[in-house]
Design a binder for these strands. Sequence first.
DNA 1: GCGTCCAGGTCTACC
DNA 2: GGTAGACCTGGACGC
Length: 319
Amino acid sequence: MVELTRAFSFSLKPTPPYNFELTVRKPAGWDLFTPFEIYQDGVLSTALHVGDMLVGLRLSSMGTADRPEVRAKLFTERELEPTQKRLAKQSVSRMLGAEDDLAEFYAVARRDPILRHTLEDLSGMHDTYSDGVFGPALLAICLQMAPLKRSEAMMRSIIEIYGEVAEFDGKRVSVWPLPKRMAALEPVELARTCRLGYRAKRIVELANFLVDRGFPDMGELAKLPPEDAKRRLMELPGIGDYSADIINPRSGFPIDVWSVDVFGKLFYGREPKNARAAVERVKAEGVRRWGEWSWMAFFYIAQDLRNLSKKLGVRLRLQ
DNA sequence: GCGTCCAGGTCTACC
DNA sequence: GGTAGACCTGGACGC
């Protein structure tokens, strides 16, 4: 456990519309940074690594979706220099999607027969990002070839056994481990302790790749053309087309055997008979329809399945 | 209770 | 360059 006793506060003025609650607590249950974060009375207590530094974060909203203001208190083990504080504030702003302008996507969505329904429910929901690729990559690997329940169990085990616990503001929050911690493990041990099966070997190889060769963080990846960022991500051990689409910031259309049913039904009115065989076809149709906004379309639809089922009169498989 | 199937993919050997 | 087959595990399902 790491006690984070130093703190500084700041506020962010995100680009409106910005709905704080929808952004930090996604309707489909996607975590902001860790499954162990705590949301109570409009306040999110979470923790993460910024670079190699463990930080705690207390987030709340002081504004509205149209005039947003996010109050943040950042906790660290040691006092930060002014420059470090400025960089940390920039990182938090980027990770919360505070600088992303939704206007162009919303213009596309309002004209789209499927997406327009999601705007009624999710207006102001921004996509969020982690700092490094290791956490999202672990998530993607745990999602491979497993029911969601089992994927969640694997992720929780990794964090509980090998992650760090941040203690700050009277709370304890467990976070994803850093690559250097996982690189030192024996795959057999990791597989046994976290019930990871063949994924353990891939995770250790991935950790060693990141430690030995380095890799751009999410901010650097976001500056690359999306196809270049995806190519870089697919160089990582255990990361293929689907996983790269999950990790790639602001890009991708990650169709798998679950989402192929959902989007098959939305596009063609029925679930494909052979889900695996239909992945490429459904993915191509999504990219054809939504182009550069494919990821945002996927993101908004995935968060709104229950409402879309009612509004469109189709039965969509929930997550 | 037991056997079989398959799930929010990726990698490798083989052609 | 394309593709079948292997890969951990555990819940669901049929019998």
